[in-house]
Design a binder for these strands. Structure first.
Lengths: 300, 300
DNA sequence: CACAATATGCTCAAAATGAGCATAACAAGG
DNA sequence: CCTTGTTATGCTCATTTTGAGCATATTGTG
């Protein structure tokens, strides 16, 4: 077994939700994701990243999960004489008393993906995007049909409907279609803010993973303060998913899953009737086999 | 940003189902997973692996997905003067006319994890495993409760019930408890066959991922021949999940998802009434936003 | 022809979901 | 004090989706 040599780099997608907005930790005034070397001293990749993030941001990382390892030749390889392997992680940071949102490094993630936020209805950028995609599809008559099918699927056009999980597919389609600055489109018409190298793609990967995960694992709580109202919780989920949810059904869902318990206190911040405060029941993780089957098991 | 140097290695968990048994491609008579260098010539990790597998096994890989990147200091690091980064992939191979199961490299995966196969009822090895875990828990009175809680959760003891997805958690618990040869236990009492370095852990990661994935993505079809009966399909899912399923409900599930269509032919291999043959409808992927939400969306 | 073995159709109760009405509890303005 | 705006919370009801199992259909075999 021959072994190749390479540079190894860790890249972090650190997410926090503050003031109902999902934010991501950046460097260089929002142009890049924080990244650092994989140092020999670290026991594992995970522990290395954990230490490093704590040191850089001052926030402890609650939840940390590996995202993806990239080593494409075509992208992000300024360094000569060796491949760069980028190992990316998704980390979730609790909302702080000193809100991370106030600090410079935290950027709202929809400034990079304005078409992903449907909370206030269909984003207007989509008109421009759809026009670009159609133009791209028609550029070569032979590929037209296939391209249109992919665009329809990813962006929920025509028959298809919007699927919030397809963040990465959408970004990659825009990249391929040259709609996005990183793939050579003019900066003026670029929908959403661009980032250094392939960092926007990595961010898209993180958002996609998180949107998928909140549906079957209680990871939202890693973004919440110690106690919260059910509406705050809902707003956080909505912020991540980029959708608005049905209030009563949302609370029914949360309550029936026994994920939270009342703290006994209430808060009256928002004007109306005071809301009960809840806390996350950590114990639930050991009690139940979360979600579980979805397969038609037979009991014989 | 300093950059660390490292060796990079690709490791593949290649899965096929033949004769109702899930198998994994191995080398060294079943002692290790196939692995190889990440060569500079490859465009991406994925394409590198794809070529390499095709060349090594003769089978084309249908589905290929990245599993995990490991770089632990404590495990699998015989090579001095540099860290090894192992990037693992999960690949699915269609059942062949020349069944891969007949070839030497393909090993039934339950020989490595006998406690994971519940198709014929509770595996007997579990008695030994549970005894070991209890002994391990009682070794230090102060950690007893926590250890028992983890064991109960992972292996579905006491209140908890068996969750087939927790393959990795179970293996890591056995590793930590020293029940498994790789962590120093005597080979005679080791439940399941051991593997080189941390390859059994990587295999556990692959099985866990696959078991989780078959529930929300139609990946089973990547393991099936071009046409198949619904019972064959069910047997494949059962083989992967290590569970038996309810026949009528399984077919209802498959049919309502419109994942398959009749070929028009039938087969009478198994004795009883001849079964209709089906093929996978590839088109379905583009038609519907598979699975989708699980969040209580509001339509305003 | 009876029987074993699998395929396939269908029913029925229980649970989960999607939508929305109704009421409760506060603040602010008249 | 009463009205209005605003959010919280309780509850209903139709529809769908599950979980379980009964019944019938088609084969090959002895």
């Amino acid at each position: 077994m021959t072994i190749g040599f390479a540079h190894a780099e860790l890249i972090a997608v650190l997410v926090a939700v503050t003031g109902g907005e999902p934010r991501v930790m950046t460097i260089r005034a929002g142009d890049a994701l924080p990244s650092g070397p994989f140092e020999m001293g670290h026991r594992t990749l995970q522990s290395g990243l954990r230490e490093w993030v704590q040191e850089q941001t001052g926030h402890p990382v609650g939840y940390l999960e590996q995202l993806y390892t990239f080593a494409d030749r075509d992208r992000n390889n300024e360094i000569r004489g060796g491949r760069t392997i980028s190992i990316s992680y998704l980390g979730l940071v609790h909302e702080q008393a000193t809100p991370g949102g106030g600090r410079p490094g935290w950027q709202g993630w929809y400034s990079y993906f304005p078409w992903e936020d449907w909370r206030t209805g269909r984003p207007v950028v989509l008109d421009h995007i759809v026009a670009c995609l159609i133009a791209w599809a028609e550029r070569y008559p032979s590929r037209r049909e296939d391209r249109m099918r992919r665009a329809n699927f990813a962006f929920g056009l025509g028959e298809a409907s919007w699927n919030e999980d397809l963040v990465l597919q959408r970004y990659e389609l825009l990249y391929e279609a040259g709609v996005v600055t990183e793939s050579g489109c003019a900066a003026e018409t670029n929908p959403g803010r661009a980032m250094f190298a392939d960092h926007r793609r990595i961010l898209a990967t993180g958002i996609a993973r998180l949107r998928a995960k909140i549906k079957y694992r209680p990871v939202v709580f890693e973004l919440m303060p110690a106690s919260f109202t059910l509406l705050q919780l809902q707003r956080s989920v909505e912020a991540l998913a980029g959708l608005t949810l049905h209030k009563q059904n949302f609370r029914r869902l949360i309550e029936q899953q026994e994920l939270v318990e009342e703290t006994g206190e209430t808060t009256s911040e928002t004007g109306g009737r005071p809301a009960k405060l809840f806390r996350y029941r950590h114990a639930i993780l050991e009690e139940r086999a979360l979600a579980g089957s979805r397969l038609p098991i037979s009991r014989n």
